[in-house]
Amino acid sequence: MKMPRTDYIEAINMLKEEVLKMGELSKGAVYGGVRSLIDKDFDLASKIVREDNNRIDILELEIEEKCMVLIALQQPVAKDLRIIGTCMKIITDLDRLSNLGVNIAKITIKIGDKPFIKPLIDIPRMGKLAAEMLDDAMEAFINEDVELARGLSKKEEEADALYDQVRRELITFMIEDPHTITIASDLSFIARYLKRIADHACNIAARVIYMVTGEREKVG
């Protein structure tokens, strides 16, 4: 005999898998954006901009639709409801952060062959950190790992510190030589996007904690 509500439980598990898949695709956009910048890989940048997260957008709508159907037909409560609510919330974060990845690729193309003012050090670090935070958040989501989710707070502090450092440095360049303003402000935007990506990862982590424990906690 089947356990009660087997199909429903399966549908919720499938939903989580799809959110995880959307997380992977979003990470691809972020990672690709940063990679294209560091390597000045214009083909990669153009590809990211051209695709404009089409697959992610479609997946987001599909996931949302599945959540709506589950709510309408299954009247989820308690943890099931928290899982579905969490999925609906975090797909928005994933969509936004993947768009930020596209924005980085756009700036890569805009900067083109012009040399960076200085070798990029902290921005790649921020990129790596943001991608790691997203990985942690998604792993915490799929494994329901509250401690891993809480751990994002510390990484968020690191990301903030790096952002402040990058900005200070870029402002110094701009003050010293106004010719650097265009490129310095582009890089400043990129740093800002990466900081926002880290923030979205923290939002996801906070949602995961709520999903697992039912309690609201701030992350980051």
């Binding site: 356990m3 429903y8 439980i9 409560v77 308690a78 943890k79 099931d80 409801l81």
Partner: peptide, 16 residues
């Protein structure tokens, strides 16, 4: 209904 503290309550209200 949002966050039951006992597993048995959770299983019952979620229809498991």
């Amino acid at each position: 209904f949002e966050n039951p503290s006992d597993k048995r309550t959770e299983d019952y209200i979620t229809g498991k």
